[in-house]
């Protein structure tokens, strides 16, 4: 329970708070803050690739052109950053991870994945959070190619979890039969990161 802060008047009343905002989040409106722990790589589409390996029947990788040839989808819902900002409407275009996973063929024992970037950043996800039309490899934002700072040429997009799960400069998924914490998860962040449960840090 939080206690009242003397003299604090928020931007909104509690009743006016947008119900699409998870607890503790604020609306960044037109801002799209950049948060990454490493130097932004200069990665040309020709140098980008995406692979799925580990517990799959057909480990493989896709070049830029191969990935772009898969059916495109659009996501225009909210995204939520653990640092407390949310964007309530977005406009990403990409390919559903279901399409990639269907080609790779997850084995029965696969329960989790480590998603990794071309910089070596990693994060862990339950396979159930990556399937069923809830995760994409995104190429475009608001009709333009993703900028390098936002993960271009391609990033993972898992908008129902805090955005550190949506790996920038995505390079691949390794399917595992267990949960293996990634970069932020070993640095004190929550293993799953559900914004509606405020799963920000270890122990939340």
């Amino acid at each position: 329970m939080s206690s009242t802060t003397r003299g604090f008047v928020g931007r909104h009343t509690a009743a006016e708070r947008d119900p699409r905002l998870p607890p503790g989040q604020y609306d960044a409106r037109h801002d799209f803050p950049v948060l990454s722990a490493e130097v932004t790589p200069e990665l040309a589409p020709a140098d980008w690739s995406f692979r799925i390996d580990g517990l799959v029947d057909r480990p493989r990788s896709w070049s830029w052109d191969q990935a772009r040839a898969l059916p495109r989808e659009r996501y225009d819902g909210p995204i939520h950053c653990v640092t407390s900002w949310s964007k309530l409407s977005t406009d990403f275009t990409g390919v559903s991870l279901d399409a990639f996973l269907a080609e790779a063929g997850p084995r029965a024992g696969a329960t989790h994945a480590v998603a990794f970037s071309h910089t070596g950043y990693t994060t862990n996800l339950a396979l159930a959070d990556l399937t069923g039309g809830r995760a994409w490899i995104a190429f475009d934002f608001e009709g333009e190619p993703l900028t390098p700072a936002h993960g271009g040429p391609a990033r993972l997009l898992v908008p129902h979890l805090y955005f550190w799960k949506s790996v920038k400069w995505i390079a691949g998924l390794r399917l595992l039969d267990h949960d293996e914490p990634g970069f932020w998860e070993v640095n004190g962040y929550h293993h799953r990161g559900d914004p509606w449960a405020e799963e920000r840090y270890s122990g939340d």
Binding site: E38, V114, F116, G120, T122, G172, L176, G188, Y201
Partner: peptide, 29 residues
Amino acid sequence: SIPAGPVNLPPIPAFAAPGRAAPSLRGSV
């Protein structure tokens, strides 16, 4: 590097030197 899977998998390049602070779980919660 991330853990090897059931077959010989190519290593993932390391991102950076290890984290420098053991996160304080009590303090963070």
